[in-house]
Simulated assay, not measured.
Amino acid sequence: MPKTRADLFAFLESLGIETTTIEHPPLFTVADSQALRGEIAGGHTKNLFLKDKKDSYFLLTVEEDAVVDLKQIHHQIGAASRVSFGKPEALMELLGVIPGAVSLFGLINDSEQRVRFFIDEALMAHDVVNAHPLTNDATTSIGSTDLLRFVRATGHEPTILKLSE
């Protein structure tokens, strides 16, 4: 059973990480998010859940308007082949979220560390990063250094790379 938003917030609190969360109607695309966001400060994320031919999984978190070359990114992330988007069933199994709610916070559900996590260096230039808290009807703001602490606390090692063009 995937962790809930309440489980996520309790985990963050146990780490001493402060966040703020804004509720909003469900958002399924970056365009939806941009239209309804309002004035939430910081970097806003776009997340790509990818897999290679050996069924290795990758989560790439970039700025919402970043362009990622999916034909070449496999070289940077160490994939065995070109990558494609992971299926919704794998997304739920590994990160506990549905399409439209993909988020770095889903790493809390990957207890076996089957997903390798990459974050774009341009996004890490922001003091605050915004992401969905396991559902797409809210946005949670977290400090960028706290974001890295969260990722490590889930058992994942964040890799910061220039992922976008």
Rank of each mutant, 00 (worst) to 15 (best):
L27K: 11
I77Q: 07
L27H: 08
E23G: 12
T19N: 01
L60D: 07
D69N: 10
V62T: 06
V62A: 03
K46R: 13
V83M: 05
I40P: 06
I22Q: 15
A41V: 13
E13G: 13
I77M: 05
A31L: 15
L50G: 02
A90P: 05
T19V: 13
M92F: 15
N47K: 02
T45I: 01
D55Y: 09
G16C: 11
D65W: 12
F85W: 09
Q76I: 00
A31F: 15
P26D: 09
L8E: 08
L48K: 02
L70T: 02
S81T: 06
D7S: 08
G38E: 01
E23D: 15
G42N: 03
G86L: 01
D55H: 12
N47Q: 05
M92K: 15
E23M: 11
V68G: 02
A66W: 01
L50K: 05
R82F: 09
A41E: 13
V68Q: 01
A41W: 00
L15R: 02
S33Y: 08
D55I: 03
F28T: 07
R37G: 10
P25M: 13
T20E: 14
K71G: 13
E13T: 14
V30Y: 06
F58D: 07
K71V: 14
L59F: 05
F85G: 02
L48R: 05
S84H: 09
K51R: 08
A10T: 11
H75F: 10
D55W: 10
K54I: 13
G86Q: 02
I17N: 14
D7T: 08
E63W: 13
G42F: 01
A80S: 09
Y57I: 03
G42T: 00
D32E: 01
R82T: 05
R37W: 00
T21M: 11
S81Q: 06
V68M: 00
S56F: 04
L59S: 04
I17V: 15
V83L: 07
I40D: 03
T20S: 15
I77F: 03
T20N: 14
L91M: 11
V30I: 15
A41G: 11
E64L: 07
T61Y: 07
L50C: 07
A31Q: 15
H74R: 01
I40V: 12
G16Q: 12
T61H: 01
I73W: 03
G78S: 05
R82Q: 09
A10N: 11
A31Y: 13
F49I: 07
V68I: 06
F58K: 02
H44I: 04
P26S: 11
G43D: 06
L8W: 06
A10H: 13
D32R: 06
T21C: 14
H24I: 12
E64S: 09
A80Y: 08
V62G: 04
F28G: 06
H44V: 01
L36V: 15
R37K: 15
T21G: 08
